[in-house]
Amino acid sequence: MATETTRRGVATWRKVIAGILFAIPWIFYLIPTYNTAQPTLGGVPFFYWFQTLWLLISSILFIIAVLLLYPGKR
């Protein structure tokens, strides 16, 4: 039963880079560099808008990771 899931032959370097890309948002949010009010954007403190911006960044990182993990597949 255990062999089926590992049968996809994806190169190790692809897995490593994808793993790093998936981990970057975790690391960013774990270190509270965003916990400050300045600079504000449209009256919104840094704490709120910078974390929101990272939603978009996370998505981009994840898409690159997924494309690395599924080369050529539909």
């Binding site: 998936f22 948002p25 975790w26 949010y29 974390q51 990272w54 939603l55 996370s58 998505s59 994840f62």
Partner: peptide
Amino acid sequence: VPYVATTFAVAA
């Protein structure tokens, strides 16, 4: 917000 940014890494 960090919750939904990171949960999809777990899910993907």
